[in-house]
Design a protein around this nucleic acid. Structure first.
Length: 198
DNA sequence: ACATGGATTCGCT
DNA sequence: GCGAATCCATGTT
């Protein structure tokens, strides 16, 4: 048990995204603990990143991106899925890290139950692989938007042990983003199968 | 007020 | 490789 502190999140999203690989995401629902090792992340920057929601300036939807580091930014897409993001630093600049995948290491049954609440996804061996499925498995929805990972007793992140081998690649699904589309801001664990794409 | 389309996933082709 | 599912913030009348 070594929960990440506020200062950990007060770094730029690229550094944070890379460093979160291997950390443990912990979620407690109705007293049941679901734990997963983070295997895949993406960094989203400020207004100069044409794939980032911050490019619209501060709005009703994305305002948490502009505030405290270490809080959750939950965003719904396609009317169906929620995506889990963590607000990054440096202080005063918008930025976030998208959690794309995790390997469940505790609370598998509860994670399957949460996933099966979706009309569109059935829990299978690829549980929590892909940002929509990650959010389902860990019960991340708009109710947790704005919650701080450094304060909450029901959702937080623990430090990793060791140093995983990390592969970087271009982000998924951002081909529309012009000059930002090919930035290699996606990171995943080279030795873990629980990622959405190789 | 209203139209648009998205940081996705699945199932069928 | 493509279409559908389906919500709501955003941008446009």
């Amino acid at each position: 048990m070594n929960r990440l502190k506020k200062s950990y999140f007060e770094r730029d999203p690229i550094t944070l995204a890379r460093d979160l690989i291997g950390c443990r995401f912990v979620r407690i629902i109705d007293g049941i603990e679901i734990v997963g090792e983070i295997t895949e992340t993406e960094a989203y920057g400020d207004a100069t990143d044409l794939a980032s929601h911050a490019r619209f300036g501060e709005t009703k939807r994305n305002n948490v991106m502009f505030h405290d580091e270490g809080i959750l930014y939950i965003y719904q897409i396609y009317g169906i899925f929620y995506l889990t993001n963590i607000v990054a630093g440096p202080t005063g600049k918008p930025g976030a890290v998208l959690i794309r995948s995790a390997q469940i290491i505790k609370g598998m049954e509860r994670a399957q139950e949460m996933t099966n609440q979706s009309k569109f996804v059935k829990a299978n061996k690829d549980l929590a692989i892909g940002p929509g499925k990650f959010s389902l498995a860990f019960g991340m929805n708009k109710a947790v938007n704005g919650i701080s990972l450094t304060d909450s007793s029901t959702v937080f992140i623990e430090a990793k042990e060791g140093t995983p081998d990390i592969i970087e690649s271009k982000r998924i699904g951002v081909d529309y983003a012009g000059k930002s589309a090919n930035l290699r801001w996606r990171f995943y664990n080279a030795n873990n199968e629980a990622v959405s794409k190789r």
